[in-house]
Design a protein around this nucleic acid. Structure first.
Lengths: 348, 348
DNA sequence: CTGGTAATCTGTAACGTTTCAATATACTTG
DNA sequence: CAAGTATATTGAAACGTTACAGATTACCAG
């Protein structure tokens, strides 16, 4: 008395429905278990059977039901990108997403975007994902030297990768741009132009790369015996108007900087506007070296010196890192830092 | 002989595990079915029981298991945003995502990003989602007047919303920016400045809003008795270099335009660079009216006249539209067009 | 009282998958 | 040839949820 009989036949009739293991089992005359195993190349399945099953599966376009797998195994095949919704000007989010997508495309993983507002607790979305198991891995950005989220995910053994490094004695996968090298190189460039009094427009001081950038800046400053003019209360996170006003303010003082290093392309727009508001001219009274992820700065003002950051690459690296981590790869192999390219200027 | 007894007790012990309906059933002393129904306010559940269950559920932080729901009901609680990965310069993707996220945040829906390469068939990702049922609804952009994807989803009764309208006799939810009004208003502005020979930098001609923009452009041109100078083979999709080169080419000819309408902020950067390459000056020999989604154009060149498009709003509208469609709302109520704001210029 | 009906509540099955323990078959080996 | 063993295959159970068809109780009309 095979009660399955009834169902197999029913299965046969529902033509338009999506094929399941049961469908395959019926078609091949095998049991569901065998089919399941054959599809994942289990060793205890006969070579011929395996081939036969896989062939039929491909023919009828079988795709494992994600909900079924997820329910049974807990594996979601989802990578979650956790983002803050307070748009940074000219943000690099789209590039990051494209990079991740690119890496995920040939895999069974899907990308889901989990937002949080910067005024809320950044740990919250992470905790939600870990507690509900709604993803297999997480990618975060805006990493801090001592990062709650990193600690939390580490303690819970949850796979993740960070855009940016930490300094908390926890080893974890990351990808980072070498902001130290960038800042140092930027200062050297300005020194080479004869600039002596430099200012830095840095990221907010709670973020890891603030420190890297500052270190590189300070290091090269000392190296060339230059001095720093402090930027009054402005960071890359501020609005265009804030940065612009802050810049005007700074540039109107006596002893204003003759060289500025900017950590992001969007902010540099505001920076330049401020400089010009103050009646100064780029390449004359001041020079700027700026990082950028888009390619617009050279069009904006050809006098700007530019270092490109490939955020798309970062996204791709991060995606590969989380996946490898999920697969159990050792952390040490999943930490990459991309060196900045050379400082470029528009060739007109 | 209640075989469940064993399991209920086991359930009781696994403290750290995530609560399920069974956990709730055990705690309240009710059956799993009752609990399930109580949580969704089914009418056949006693008022007191309902309250009791919901209270306990809230206390212990019960969250329905998505895989369970999905497997049983087919409901994924996922909205998929289908994107092409060929980055348009200064693309608005991040804004769109933020807008969608915003709308989805207070709902059980998650956002998943499904990319496709522009050289591949754009129908493919859509078909994948529909066939595998991996989302409850889809949002697409780069809508064409006769759009395969729209036809496909319509025929399959799959909920979706498009960024941009179609002209194929199929009613469906959409959100669009009134590009016709934008172009017309842009032309009027240029006419008001005494410009007589206008060029349009349009989107690629296969997209719907190409036609809208062209119509508005042509209409206002006729209205003021102005003439069009054709833009040689450039669209908003082209690279910076292409647009720039194309612009130089155009501006060096006799009878070059004295006014240009540009459909996107990113392209306008290239456009301006081209104009200046040709030795012309903005506000003197030429004026530009450009749409933008970021706020950078005024910083770039204060002479540019700008119309802002709120892509974040678009995202939010689209998300609401799909969700409403999923819930069965009539299509007619889910079609919105946002009117452009006034043409602005930097006030220095 | 009897029989009916509304109001509450409940067990079972099913969604598609994988894991476990078991079975059937063929092949060695002493 | 008995007994063990490797090979190939299998059904049942479980993951967490909801739909279905019953069950139990209380109440009311006749």
């Amino acid at each position: 008395m095979r009660k399955d009989n009834r169902q197999d036949e029913a299965d046969e009739t529902r033509h338009s429905e999506r094929p399941t293991l049961k469908t395959l089992a019926f078609m091949t005359g095998l049991g569901v278990t065998t089919v399941s195993r054959a599809l994942k190349d289990a060793p205890e399945i006969g070579a011929e059977t395996r081939k036969r099953v896989q062939m039929v599966a491909r023919q009828i376009g079988y795709r494992p039901n994600r909900a079924g797998v997820r329910l049974r195994t807990g594996k979601t095949n989802v990578i979650s990108l956790v983002l803050d919704t307070e748009e940074q000007i000219g943000g690099f989010v789209s590039d990051m997403i494209y990079g991740i997508s690119e890496a995920l495309a040939p895999t069974p993983y899907h990308l889901i975007v989990t937002p949080y507002s910067r005024n809320n607790d950044p740990l919250e979305p992470v905790r939600y994902i870990v507690e509900t198991g709604s993803a297999d891995g997480i990618i975060i950005s805006r990493t801090e030297p001592d990062d709650k989220r990193v600690r939390y995910m580490s303690e819970h053994g949850f796979p993740f990768a960070t855009h940016g490094r930490t300094r908390m004695g926890i080893e974890h996968p990351y990808h980072d741009f070498d902001n130290r090298a960038f800042a140092a190189e930027a200062v050297r460039t300005l020194a080479g132009l004869g600039r002596r009094r430099l200012a830095l427009l840095p990221p907010p001081p709670n973020l890891s790369y603030y420190h890297h950038m500052r270190e590189g800046f300070a290091e090269a400053l000392a190296e060339h015996g230059l001095s720093e003019i402090p930027f009054p209360a402005a960071t890359l996170d501020n609005s265009i108007d804030t940065i612009r006003a802050s810049t005007v303010d700074m540039m109107r003082r006596r002893g204003c900087p003759d060289g500025i290093v900017s950590g992001a392309g969007g902010a540099t727009f505001a920076l330049v506007a401020g400089i010009e508001d103050a009646g100064l001219q780029l390449g004359r009274e001041v020079d700027i070296v700026s990082k950028q992820s888009s390619r617009l700065l050279h069009l904006f003002r050809p006098q700007i010196y530019v270092v490109n950051e490939d955020v798309r690459l970062a996204g791709s690296e991060l995606a590969h890192a989380v996946m490898a981590r999920i697969a159990g790869a050792p952390v040490a192999s999943l930490q990459t830092v991309s060196r900045p390219g050379t400082v470029e200027r528009a060739h007109r």
